[in-house]
Design a protein around this nucleic acid. Structure first.
Length: 851
RNA sequence: GCCCGGAUGGCGGAACUGGCAGACGCAAGGGACUUAAAAUCCCUCGGCCUUAUGGCUGUGCGGGUUCGAUUCCCGCUCCGGGCACCA
């Protein structure tokens, strides 16, 4: 037995014990309460970084804590293994995406295992394995049957030189990242999931998500964007067509002075008059080049072009010129907007630019707005004016009144609109799940029969910088007999968005090897929902919304019984570090800087900003090096102690040394007291000078428990244990109270075990226990130990602290006031004044108001 | 631009429901031990004033509510995350 704390030896020892005993392997046990803890699984990028260490350390604390409390804890790990980086590696380094991915998984698994995380590794899977994605393909087929998956034409970013689709992140200043050619918008037939069919449920079921951070719920609510409004038909002047608009402000209809259409609007072509044709078509071309995220931003210059046609305002018969405008999107509402410049800022700017009439129809109380002098749109409430029979109505009432009036005339109706769009899942990429459909010239779109699943992604492909999917060049994959008529047909060569795999992996962990169906319902019903989900805030909307959507799909297919996948959610901040650069050598690693100078040339470095760790900026810390130097327990402890989980964590090497010092102190505490306490039982009561120490032991148990459970304030939990350690070290009558010392030492070891499991196991064994610290369970508070004889009351005069008094724990309000007024410093401040009132917060504070 | 957050000593952070601002840790300074170093231990540590008891001031900025505001409200500044083909 080593007397010095030697992390590498004890960490290897206990990792082996856990692996051999399968300590964290679980199965369905109806007799035990389950707890499913999940951290967002990683993309196998190659190396574990500090963000992973932090995420998984946080999860591991909760998993081990719940395990010690007696829950049947499911804590799995796997790999989100499809995605673009693998393809980029293939193009740049000639490695096959599959080889690249599987090798990354192997090295990252090794790294994770060194951290001592309590995973049930038997449940591990990677989403790029056909055993996983075949079930995804099956769900797709069932969605197809139910009309929840469908095909439609949609715009993508396209590069004509590379002949390929570009992701938004591959578009730099409107040009292709690889060749620099201007990116154009191209219409392609793509597969969509009907997320909009679940829009209402996705919104309503948020009531069940009380365990989610409010900010995430707000973001999702805004993303779904339910708005009540009205669809209104506007007749086109001089022909039989009508233009339908959606508006949330039917109350402003009398103020609509023109009309704006999306450039892609199906009626646009027809409405453009010959006189306007040349200009309008040039405008459409220009708009099509702007990518859609750019078009919806408000910084963009609002531009438009007159079509030459007019619409008729159904309420007042006004002739409204019809424009095409770059800020109107075909994807939202009807792709046509009635423009009310007096009451909508975008319309206002547009009207000013093109000199269109501005007419006020909502008059705020106590003001007299005038369209001619208005400086910005009035979007607040008010009474209707210039609105015929509706004059004088509050605008909120008028929304319904006007909608009903139009409904009666058959020219409009109240509707609900969502900002949420259907989820486009087609990707023109190789490294993803093949979409299981076949195109036959005579039978059309034919789903792959279930018996032919999985459609396996072929590995014998050549990836090149040419672009385009290699699947489209793979004859054996492409050519297939039509399942209906037997004629030669071709396969779909698009693959799924990788968000599809991560939308249901949490359910598959319940039964990773089940080979009869998507899920083994019995196992899924036992384990789901996930009780605690942990991951980065950057996933607040998309991943979490898609996972909620898939849960509802799986439920409606009879595969799951739950409505929502994640009962509680913890969103963790990023790991950041200061960047440093040399004027000559660019970004520098921390070891390349000495005394503020570049070690290569001696020039002073430019201290950068604190930013998210990234390889390109060289502000990374390799967890492996950290573990070699200090041990996994220290790395874990630091990641948890430096900041609460939701906050960004700023890396600071010195902080690590502090954590290492603390663990050495814990180690010595056990060693230094071993002779004293090894032969005594744990105290159940304390006398005299040991009473305060024992009270602190139990106060610490109470604090650590509540800090971990639900609050996730690991930093303060650790701080409380540090304080207890300091108290034990400062307690000089050790030899008189060996049982209390033993109780304190054992409490420290058990309370620390979720944070630094290897050391805790080692010390627990050293203290003479068999069976491990996990089986020992979580320590319990002895209420008798918490009882106090005295209490400290803060005394304020006019809100400023003037004294701190100590009174009996059961002192009455009157007694507290008496002692407070007798205090000399208090007396000094109320001298010559009249005490007006005294505010007493029992057990805490007394504020004397005197003047 | 839109949506969502954040800002507290030299630094990371604490203060859970409106009630002692700065717990715990780092860094720094001083001391003990040591031939010396490392390790360890002890003391000081927001600013200003004071011999001291103590006082004034202070939680990004400007207002407000309250006996009392880091916490609640209004108006700003700066920083971060997301924005639908990065995962």
């Amino acid at each position: 037995m080593e007397e010095r704390y030697s992390p590498s030896a004890i960490e290897a020892k206990w990792q082996k014990v856990w692996e051999e005993k399968k300590t964290f392997q679980v199965s369905e046990d109806p007799g035990k309460e389950k707890y499913y803890l999940l951290e967002m699984f990683p993309y196998p990028s190659g190396r574990i970084h500090m963000g992973h260490v932090r995420n998984y350390a946080i999860g591991d604390v909760v998993a081990r804590f719940k395990g010690m409390q007696g829950y049947n804890v499911l804590h799995p790990m796997g790999w989100d293994a499809f995605g673009m980086p693998a393809e980029n590696a293939a193009i740049q380094h000639g490695v096959h995406p599959a080889k690249w991915t599987w090798e990354n998984i192997d090295s990252m698994r090794k790294q994770l295992k060194k951290i001592g995380l309590s995973y049930d590794w038997d449940r591990e899977f990677a989403t790029c394995s056909p055993d996983y994605y075949r079930w995804e393909q099956l769900v797709f087929l069932r969605m197809l049957e139910k009309g929840l998956a469908y095909k439609k034409s949609s715009a993508v970013n396209w590069c004509d030189d590379c002949f390929t689709v570009l992701a938004n992140e591959q578009v730099e200043d409107g040009c292709c990242w690889r060749c620099g050619r201007e990116v154009v918008q191209k219409e392609l037939e793509q597969w969509f999931f009907k997320t909009t069919a679940y829009a209402d449920e996705l919104l309503d079921d948020m009531d069940q998500l009380g365990g989610w951070p409010e900010q995430v719920l707000t973001m999702q609510r805004n993303w779904i964007g339910k708005s009540h409004g009205c669809e209104i038909d506007f007749a086109v002047d001089g022909n039989d067509e009508t233009v339908r608009v959606f508006t949330t402000r039917p109350d402003t209809l009398f103020g609509a002075t023109f009309m704006s259409l999306a450039a892609e609007h199906p009626l646009a072509e027809q409405l453009i008059t010959d006189a306007q044709r040349a200009e309008a078509e040039a405008f459409i071309e220009k708009v099509k080049k702007q990518d859609t995220t750019e078009r919806s931003t408000e910084t963009m210059e609002k531009e438009g072009i007159f079509t030459g046609s007019y619409c008729i305002n159904p309420l007042n018969g006004r002739k409204m010129p019809v424009f095409l405008a770059n800020f109107v999107l075909m994807g939202y509402g009807t792709g046509a907007v009635m423009a009310v410049p007096a009451h909508d800022q975008r319309d206002f700017e547009f009207a000013k630019k093109y000199d269109l009439p501005i007419e006020v129809v909502i008059q705020p109380e106590g003001e007299a707005l005038n369209g001619a002098t208005l400086e910005e749109a009035w979007t607040g409430p008010g009474l209707l004016v210039n609105s015929g029979d509706f004059d004088g109505q509050p605008n909120e009432d008028a929304k319904q009144a006007i909608a009903e009036y139009l409904d009666g005339k058959g020219e409009g109706k109240a509707t609900i609109n969502f900002r949420l769009r259907d989820w486009g899942v087609s990707r023109q990429r190789y490294w993803g799940t093949p979409i299981p459909v076949i195109y036959c010239d005579s039978c059309g779109v034919v789903p792959v029969p279930e018996k032919d699943l999985p459609v396996v992604l072929p590995e014998d492909v050549v990836l090149s910088a040419e672009g385009g999917s290699p699947l489209a060049r793979h004859e054996a994959f492409l050519k297939v007999d039509c399942p209906i008529c037997g004629a030669t047909a071709r396969r779909e060569t698009d693959t799924f968005d990788t968000f599809v795999e991560s939308s249901w992996y949490f359910a598959r962990y319940a039964c990773p090897d089940y080979d009869q169906d998507v899920l083994d319902k019995k196992a899924a019903d036992y384990w789901l929902p996930v009780d605690q989900y942990i991951g980065g805030i950057e996933h607040a909307v998309m991943h979490l919304l898609y996972a909620r959507f898939w849960t509802k799909i799986l439920r409606d297919l009879g595969l799951l019984s739950v409505d929502e996948p994640f009962t509680n959610l913890l969103t963790q901040g990023m790991v950041c570090m200061e960047t440093q650069s040399c004027p000559e050598h660019g970004w520098l690693y921390p070891e390349e800087v000495e005394n503020g100078r570049c070690t290569k040339c001696g020039k002073p470095v430019i201290g950068g900003r604190t930013e998210k760790m990234s390889k390109s900026k060289k502000n990374v810390v390799d967890p492996d090096a950290l573990i070699r130097l200090f041990g996994a327990d220290t790395a874990r402890l630091f990641a948890l102690f430096a900041a609460p989980p939701e906050k960004d964590l700023e890396w600071n090497e010195q902080g690590v040394e502090g954590c290492s010092r603390f663990l050495n102190r814990v180690w010595r505490l056990v060693y230094d007291n071993l002779d004293l306490i090894s032969q005594v039982p744990v105290a159940t009561a304390a006398e005299g000078s040991a009473k305060a120490l024992r009270r602190q032991v139990h106060e610490t148990i109470q604090k650590v428990t509540s800090d971990i459970d639900g609050r996730f304030h690991f930093n303060t939990a650790i701080a409380a244990v540090m304080e207890l350690l300091n108290a034990v070290n400062g307690f000089k009558q050790n030899s008189e109270h060996p049982a209390v010392i033993r109780e304190a030492v054992e409490a420290i070891v058990r309370l620390l075990s979720p944070f630094v499991p290897h050391m805790a196991e080692e010390l627990w064994e050293l203290l003479g226990h068999e069976g491990g610290v996990i089986a020992a369970g979580w320590p319990e508070v002895d209420p008798a130990a918490l009882v106090k004889d005295e209490q400290m009351i803060v005394v304020q005069v006019m809100g400023k602290v003037r004294a701190k008094i100590t009174v009996a724990a059961d002192a009455s309000e009157e007694q507290v006031k008496e002692v407070a007024l007798a205090d000399t410093n208090v007396a000094r401040f109320i001298e010559g004044k009249t005490v007006r009132k005294m505010i007493y917060v029992p057990g805490r504070l007394l504020n004397i108001v005197a003047n």
